[in-house]
Design a binder for these strands. Sequence first.
DNA 1: GATTGTGAAAGCGTTCACAGCC
DNA 2: GGCTGTGAACGCTTTCACAATC
Lengths: 226, 226
Amino acid sequence: MGASGRRIPEATVARLPDYLRLLTESLDAGVVNLSSEELADLAGVNAAKVRKDLSYLGTYGVRGVGYDVEYLIYQFRRELGLDHDWPVVIVGAGNLGQALAGYGGFRERGYPVAGIVDVDPAKVGTKIGEIEVRPVTELAAIVRRCHVSIGVVATPAPAAQLAADRLVAAGISSILNFAAVLLTVPSTVSVRKVDLAVELQILSYYEQRRAAAALATPRAQLAHGG
Amino acid sequence: MGASGRRIPEATVARLPDYLRLLTESLDAGVVNLSSEELADLAGVNAAKVRKDLSYLGTYGVRGVGYDVEYLIYQFRRELGLDHDWPVVIVGAGNLGQALAGYGGFRERGYPVAGIVDVDPAKVGTKIGEIEVRPVTELAAIVRRCHVSIGVVATPAPAAQLAADRLVAAGISSILNFAAVLLTVPSTVSVRKVDLAVELQILSYYEQRRAAAALATPRAQLAHGG
DNA sequence: GATTGTGAAAGCGTTCACAGCC
DNA sequence: GGCTGTGAACGCTTTCACAATC
């Protein structure tokens, strides 16, 4: 049996990258072994959750001792498919697309930018670090040449569906979508959405609530104090 | 009773901004009324979920008819605290910070950038659109002057905690964190984290799974086909 | 003695299904 | 007749608690 044997719950999958990062930082700091409680503290979660999460990958811990950091990192990287790079292609060379292309963190974490394309002829040819913006017509060629399977949609909202269609036609099977629209793609394609305005709205909702609560019971603090 | 009366589940809160956007787009397109099923289709979710989500805000629908789009937008905006702008301050004027500051979408959606600060003297004074990068020492002054309650951490990971500490000291009560670290803040401060590398790792996990599954059962397709 | 791995319990979130209302 | 609002059922996630193991 291999990595493909088990089915890992979505909620756990979403936490694996965080564990991996914490483990890597620990290893760099010279930590050889970690207990579930120590890892839980680093991740800001409950120790039982850490143990259950790790148990989906396999039984890599030692009772009474904990987990070998280096070995766990190896298993995490294998499970997450990080034994090789995953080149990405970015569609849209506006503010965000440029920032993403220029952001070294992607390459560093195993996601080199294979290319960035735009429909706007004025943008084609400009350089972002070492990467040159190419016309969108070259998308399929880039995908084929660099074996890209992840595409990033960084276009304005009205252009996002077309960008996604082009990515799918080019043979991509995962999309990270920064545009504020629901993308329609074949069921074989995974999509994750990051909407910055949505994040701010969630924050301001809770701000608003606190403000409303403070107004509604202005003397509650005093009551509790006495 | 007002908006502050009910307690809305987190999962619902996270969907409200999406509904609001879809409703606004519908209104712009001339749609006056929507049923829960129509809104569900737009949002890519189940109609029962839409009805339950909306029911937490109040009983704004009409049985046999649906929801009045304009009235629902009004209620959403009130509930989300969008009856006024929420100025934000950005800490870190690197790639991402600059992109965020230059991204018009924030202002447009009610989150004008009140300021962007950086510790690097070389960056101070540079202009991003109409906004000038200021030294981090001016953070508290900006927060006070513009009544900012939301801060954005767009620094490299090692500087993120210090940035958060400064934001908290300056009086901020919500933080949107783009750095790949867990921020420690007082319990009165809300934090939301956006980690782009994590999103890519989640996508590549599922990519990896598909690839492994395809290898494990290379003839499964044929078997199903026959 | 310490810590894992995991059944069982508790808590949330989603979906169903239908009474209630227009 | 059509659609909402919601109790009840279901399923997923988290947490507890402890036997198994080093």
